[in-house]
Amino acid sequence: MTNATAPNIIRFILLLVVQIAICNNINFFGYINPYIYIIFILLFPINDNNNNNRLFILLLSFLLGILVDMFSDSGGVHAAASVCLAYARPVMLKASFGMLYEHQSLKFSNIDTGNLITYVTLGTVLHHLVLFSLEIFNISGILLIFKKTLFSSIFTIILSVLIIILFSRKRK
């Protein structure tokens, strides 16, 4: 755990700054913004057998979400979405990596790109669905929710996969 702490702290701060300074201001076609800060939650190291790890990631996701909320004046929507994502993470890991995850030999530094895309897609769609449902908070805006989720997800998935591939060092 100790040797993974420093890179994770740096990743936390860096993603937060990039999110509020750049990604919140893209407004592609007027309303499409990527939410790349979820990379932190997706790539948080998996600690085998340790139940406290899950509590820790829940708390950290909440903190990250609430900070993004503070900067974008959105109440608690990012925090709620992040906490959901962090809670559902083991299920998604199992779904996209299968045996590799169950045998606890999964390392984010050497994974198949196909599996990675599945994993990021699952995570992003869940996060964005919760995010926009809470942001619009109105059942009559359901089409708007789906529209925003779809387009923002596409943007986030492309950016996240590119960032993850670009910044993982041990790739050949």
């Binding site: 829940l58 708390l59 979400g65 809470l134 908070f137």
Partner: peptide, 22 residues
Amino acid sequence: NKTFLLFLLLFGISMALTIQSH
């Protein structure tokens, strides 16, 4: 059930903040 309870707590806090902001 501590993971689930913590999840409920944090989600509850963020929901409260969301509703408040509306």
